[in-house]
Nucleic acid binder design. Structure first.
Lengths: 145, 145
DNA sequence: TATTGTTATACTCTATAACTATA
DNA sequence: TATAGTTATAGAGTATAACAATA
């Protein structure tokens, strides 16, 4: 059992080590792609979520796994850049929907294209069959059947 | 092509989506395991690296992919907790080695055990063959042959 | 002059606790 | 009272730029 989390030769890696290192690698590619649009990974996730939803602040907190106060700051900074906007809920005077702006969609689209390119690049060495296998196994771990 | 980064059904996921979501899932498990020892993922990586090395600050910056000033702060905070210590290099008056302490090893070991358990748990639903496949493919992406 | 490291400064991200407004 | 959200505050993590000490 190795578990050094860095620097091991591939043939020494346990499944856990391999998954942890894969996570670091993908996360780094993601962060790099986001950074090209001056986005953090969290901001990129935010834009991704808002593509097809206008959730309340508490919904966002739940989906992102953050405290509501953290989401307030997150949305503040995104709104200051014109990427999202707050919309008062009609049915509840306390509630606020968060909506992506046209600019937010543009930035999100550009970032997503770069993410695709970067992460695709990581799997570039795999054959068609291996790619399909990896896709199946990763999906299975993320959402067990 | 989906690329929502959240909420898709597994059978809709592209390879890129599956890898991104897998990365989030593993990262969350990692962060949770580290948090049990009051460690960030970065601090955990630091302890992992120092298990079998006493690198200079610049070495750490390179391995962690951070600026040297960021590493100064990282090592400051770890040293304040007694997890690591700075050791003047004998051959170069400017250089400083970073060394893990006995306490740092204890904390790192505990965290590593939790990481193993948490990440192992993620793959719990896979059969032996799938586990071996996933291990091989993840290692291949991380370190292309 | 170049290199190693620290310090000063600033910003993002995150949390906890206290607060406001509405239900 | 309970809920949705914001604000105040604090700390980690990160970067850039300026600095100190050594090579």
């Amino acid at each position: 059992m190795s578990t050094t989390m860095l620097g091991d030769r591939p043939e020494d890696l346990t499944l856990v080590d391999a998954l942890v290192q894969l996570s670091f690698t993908v996360h780094a590619a993601l962060a790099a792609a986001a950074a090209e649009q001056d986005l953090s990974v969290t901001q990129l996730r935010l834009l991704g979520i808002l593509r097809d939803r206008q959730p309340l602040m508490l919904d966002l907190a739940r989906v992102l796994g953050l405290e509501k106060s953290s989401v307030s700051g997150l949305v503040d900074r995104a709104a200051k850049r014109g990427l999202v906007e707050r919309v008062d809920a009609t049915h509840d005077g306390r509630a606020v929907h968060v909506r992506i702006t046209a600019e937010g969609r543009r930035v999100g689209r550009r970032a997503q294209r770069r993410v695709n390119a970067e992460v695709e690049q990581l799997a570039a060495g795999l054959g068609e069959q291996d790619r399909a296998e990896l896709r199946r196994l990763a999906a299975e771990v993320v959402a067990p059947a």
